[in-house]
């Protein structure tokens, strides 16, 4: 039953994705279906795609991570300062980039550890813990920069955000690699399996010998690291970093995770579904941009889409339940008739 429902959910998503894509392609082939537009779409979505992957992982364990954008801001500011400093002190670009990446990973691990300890160690509900750290991390980013933006990075760092390999944007390649890694983590490792267990039923997981605390701490470290990696793409694409950048991504990340079939109550979510959710969001966004709708209309549409998807999921779920009950009644009736 679970497998059937799962595949049908992804199938619906696939249909929605194809329909939107075909409509936009037919409606404006000269603008939508061009190499440049496809390329720019492929380089736009990875930064929030990584945040959405992080959100999905937190949701699989039955939690939520409201601090992802703030973690990105914090690590982004630190990386930006290291890179900008390297130009002034004329450190070799390679060394500076390596340092920046290492710093981002180290800082994001610490951020994730703070979240994890609050949630799993002390037992603070994920909403509250990450609400607090959202303020804390963003606050740190603001304090470090005094609210100003940091800009001017080595030329070679730009490749990360705007370079291409054989015409394929580098951010896209990074995203594909990380999505594959997350997929392997969720499907092939003990940590992944345990995340679904904890998300479906923490008590059962605990009594089945799962170390819930460890699983949750690892999960929030992973989500923070994904947010950190997203920040590298962000600052490279924008060539600057200003604290407060990308606050709209929080809603989009939650939207995409839910759109991609992740259950916000925990226990279910697939990378495949999420990726289709991201593609749907990105092509819709691109279509709205080409038709030059205002950002306010887009804001309205994202809210509407999030609500519509959840209502549809609810109705589908109810329909499936009813069908199952009816089938069972039929079987019962058949059984009675046979008697």
């Amino acid at each position: 039953m679970k497998i059937k429902l799962k595949s049908s959910k992804n199938f619906t998503l696939f249909i929605i994705m194809m329909v939107i894509f075909i409509i936009l392609s037919i409606a404006m082939p000269s603008k939508f279906l061009t190499g440049i537009n496809l390329q720019s779409m492929a380089s736009q979505f990875p930064e929030f795609g990584l945040l959405a992957l992080a959100m999905m992982m937190a949701m699989i364990t039955g939690g939520i991570d409201l601090s992802v954008v703030s973690v990105s801001n914090f690590t982004g500011v630190i990386a930006a300062l290291i890179l900008a400093d390297s130009i002034e002190s004329s450190t070799p670009a390679g060394v500076a980039i390596l340092l920046a990446v290492l710093a981002v990973i180290a800082v994001s691990i610490v951020c994730g550890l703070v979240n994890g300890l609050l949630i799993a160690g002390i037992g603070v509900p994920p909403i509250l813990a990450t609400l607090g750290t959202q303020g804390l991390f963003l606050g740190l980013a603001i304090v470090i920069t005094q609210g100003h933006s940091v800009s001017g990075f080595p030329e070679s760092f730009m490749a990360l955000g705007s370079g291409t390999v054989l015409g394929i944007p580098v951010p896209f390649i990074i995203f594909v690699l990380i999505a594959l890694l997350v997929s392997v983590l969720l499907n092939r490792t003990r940590q992944g399996f345990n995340m679904y267990m904890v998300g479906s039923n923490p008590t059962v997981a605990k009594f089945s010998g799962v170390n819930n605390t460890k699983v949750l701490i690892n999960t929030y470290i992973l989500t923070a690291v994904l947010a950190g990696l997203a920040s590298l793409i962000m600052i490279s694409r924008a060539n600057s970093m200003r604290p407060g950048y990308g606050t709209a991504y929080l809603l989009q990340a939650i939207l995409v995770a839910v759109l991609g079939g992740t259950d916000p109550d925990g226990g279910f979510g697939t990378v495949k579904g999420l990726v289709m959710g991201i593609i749907i969001l990105q092509i819709t966004q691109s279509g709205l941009n080409i038709m030059s709708f205002s950002p306010f209309f887009k804001k309205f549409i994202w809210g509407f889409a999030l609500l519509a998807i959840m209502v549809i999921n609810y109705l589908l779920h109810k329909y499936n339940e009813r069908k199952r009950v009816m089938e069972m009644n039929k079987l019962k009736a058949a059984g009675q008739a046979a008697d």
Binding site: I64, I127, L251, I254, L255, V258, P264, D265, S294, F296, F297, K298, K299, F300, I301, W302, G303, F304, L306, L307, M310, V311, Y314, L315
Partner: peptide
């Protein structure tokens, strides 16, 4: 309506409606 009739999670619903209301106001 969303929370009670469709039984949706409150945080995500109100995140959605917040975007919906504010977007509609500005548009």
């Amino acid at each position: 309506v969303f929370i009670s009739i469709f039984n949706l999670p409150t945080l995500i619903t109100t995140l959605g409606t917040s975007s919906l209301f504010h977007g509609a106001l500005l548009e």
